[in-house]
């Protein structure tokens, strides 16, 4: 009788474990595979990529890019998406991770080859600097402000909102303060 109870208990236990899943990991493994999981405790930032200005300057766009494949009808390449902030992450790191996770094309000039000692963003989603006129290219904004330095030098904090926005007019069309020809 005792043996039966033990056996029943054992079966119930095993079934419980099986239903619950048998994913067993060490602490290190758990940390590694869950590094980008968003939990109530994790620090996160939000990233979006947009090119709506191109829609207003379609006639300036490189004819080879005039297709919904490159310019989405609503101008949204990546809607605001939350990403876990890792220690020391810069604006570039988050963008780099986001485009990989979402398989978005990107090309940049590394810090060593750039004259500014920072990563220089050349193209995202096949839209490059000058793809839509001589004053076009990518700019980034953090919490509504256009920072004054390269994206691989801007270290992020919890809760910040990063927007990569394509400009067709040196930032004027996306609300960047513009100093063209001033300061003489």
């Amino acid at each position: 009788m005792k043996k039966d109870i033990l056996a029943v208990f054992g079966i119930i236990l095993i079934l419980a474990v099986l239903i619950n899943g048998t994913h067993i990991q060490s602490v290190d493994e758990y940390y590694l595979t869950h590094i980008d999981d968003i939990t109530p405790e994790s620090e996160t930032v939000t990233l979006s990529i947009r090119c709506d200005t191109v829609l207003q300057h379609y006639e300036d766009l490189d004819p080879a890019l005039r297709s919904e494949e490159f310019v989405p009808p609503d101008g949204v390449i990546l809607p605001p998406t939350e990403y876990v902030l890792r220690e020391g992450d810069t604006v570039f790191d988050i963008l780099d991770r986001a485009v990989r996770y979402n398989k978005i094309q990107m090309e940049f000039q590394g810090a060593a080859k750039s004259p500014f000692g920072s990563v220089y963003m050349q193209g995202i989603h096949y839209l490059y600097e000058f793809s839509c006129g001589p004053l076009s290219g990518w700019m980034y904004r953090v919490d509504g402000e256009f920072p004054h330095y390269g994206c691989s030098r801007y270290e992020l904090h919890d809760g910040q909102n990063i927007e990569w926005i394509y400009t067709c007019d040196l930032g004027q069309d996306i609300g960047a303060p513009w100093m063209g020809g001033q300061g003489k």
Partner: peptide, 26 residues
């Protein structure tokens, strides 16, 4: 992790079946 989970799952399943057979026999 997935693979290990699968192996553990299969092994536990086998044990459960054995236990069940044992119980039924008894």
């Amino acid at each position: 992790g997935l693979l290990r989970g699968l192996i553990i799952g299969v092994a536990l399943g086998a044990v459960a079946i054995l236990l069940t057979i044992f119980l039924i026999c008894r």
